[in-house]
């Protein structure tokens, strides 16, 4: 952004906080079966942990954490995980997104649905994270200050 002032204290605080916010984001995604949480909230927390470094440190420093180039492949990966889960259920003989037919041996249908929900929530989290970072990156394009 335009009026950037370099402050080492803000940068140090952001670098200290960012890994813990990211860890909490993964916890929210994976523990969403038992507590409030899930793919959307966890993805927004992951995006917040990356945006914190981007706001505090500038473009050149933040490209060490997460490069701008991999935003679009990561969003596509999230959609692909969701869609391929549905397609695998169709190939195994069920309906689209029918997790009870997933080909994991040794589990009853209810537990298969448990793991199916877990898989698609990871996909949702990746997409939400990548898209929120992508919107920020395109909005500050051309203002390389750091």
């Amino acid at each position: 952004m335009k009026e950037q002032f370099q402050s080492p204290i803000v940068l140090l605080g952001s670098r200290l906080l960012s890994p813990y916010i990211m860890l909490f984001g993964w916890y929210v995604i994976i523990h969403g079966h038992y507590s409030p949480g899930g793919g959307f909230q966890g993805g927004a927390l992951l995006a917040a942990s990356v945006l914190l470094i981007r706001v505090a440190g500038g473009t050149r420093l933040s490209s060490l954490q997460l490069r701008e180039v991999i935003n679009t492949p990561m969003a596509t990966l999230g959609v692909a995980i969701y869609f391929l889960t549905g397609v695998v259920a169709v190939l195994a003989g069920g309906f689209f997104l029918d997790y009870g037919q997933l080909p994991i041996p040794g589990l009853e249908a209810a537990w298969l649905r448990y793991y199916g929900i877990l898989i698609i929530e990871v996909g949702i989290g990746l997409t939400v994270m990548a898209i929120l970072i992508m919107i920020y990156d395109n909005m500050v394009k051309g203002e390389d200050h750091a």
Partner: peptide
């Protein structure tokens, strides 16, 4: 409403890029 909030912030992002 959980999905509506997240879709709402994505469409607000489109509005912001149009403003810029």
């Amino acid at each position: 409403m959980l999905t509506a909030i997240v879709v709402g912030v994505a469409t607000l992002g489109v509005a912001f890029t149009l403003l810029i």
